[in-house]
Design a protein around this nucleic acid. Structure first.
Lengths: 128, 128
DNA sequence: TTAATAATAGTAATGATTACTATTTTATTA
DNA sequence: TAATAAAATAGTAATCATTACTATTATTAA
């Protein structure tokens, strides 16, 4: 890995992400960081989001539908995606790491981990 | 949902998918179905793959990295993605549906299901 | 058989993301 | 502090996967 140099733009991107609980897309990060750095380019946003998630400082969430989203909290946790409003939110739940062992049981390779998210209907979209 | 009309192209796409265990991309489906229908267009392949997966006849696999893949077997099962060779393979494992309850436990919305895949090193890429 | 409508081929457009490059910032060292 | 090296940037172009558009063709129902 090449050595890292400080950049104000990267710091601003990370700070912005940490203020948000809604896991914004790169584009939303871009429009917001532009308030502080009007000349920042979308490429810089993407490059830094990739860089930060590779280094484990933020988390990238691929929903399999629509653009990637980013979470300023890199600690392991799961996400819920509402099928109606498409919002993405954090779940507080006990560990499900035992599913790795289940996956490994009849498998000849090596299962190192998993990717998972949950979907359904969020509180706001729920009919009363 | 609008009414469905038979098409030879759709049948060929589905037949091709059922002969494969490697979960090909739309592009791979395209190049193969073209052997039978040289004039088929990529748009037709995409449209039918979407249509078939919406109707539950095939399964769409979003890897969050690279193009989507398709599985001719629509019955619920999980996939493993090799981080080295990027191949996608089926896993035979016991149910992990209990994770839905775990996700629901402290959640105010309604968890209807989950999406999950496993990753690591496949048998072929494993150092001996 | 005709009429309706769904599906197609071919092409253009879109959206998200990455690549390129000349310039500017940051960090190191004389 | 000034000079240098290296990394990051802005701005733009390019790429990739996928979807949209439209005139024509195929399928199905009457």
């Amino acid at each position: 890995m090449q050595q890292l140099k400080y950049s104000r733009q990267r710091e601003s991107i990370k700070n912005f992400l940490m203020t948000r609980k809604d896991h914004p897309t790169a584009d939303v990060v871009y429009t917001n960081v532009r308030k502080e750095y009007p000349n920042i380019s979308l490429g810089t946003v993407y490059r830094n989001l990739s860089l930060l998630s590779e280094r484990g400082e933020i988390m990238k969430i691929s929903t399999g539908d629509g653009p990637d989203r980013f979470d300023g909290n890199p600690l392991p946790h799961y996400h819920f995606i509402c099928k109606k409003c498409e919002s993405v939110m954090d779940l507080e739940m006990e560990s499900i790491d035992e599913i790795n062992e289940k996956a490994n049981a009849n498998f000849n390779g090596i299962v190192e981990g998993h990717m998972a998210y949950f979907y359904g209907c969020c509180e706001n979209c729920k009919p009363n």
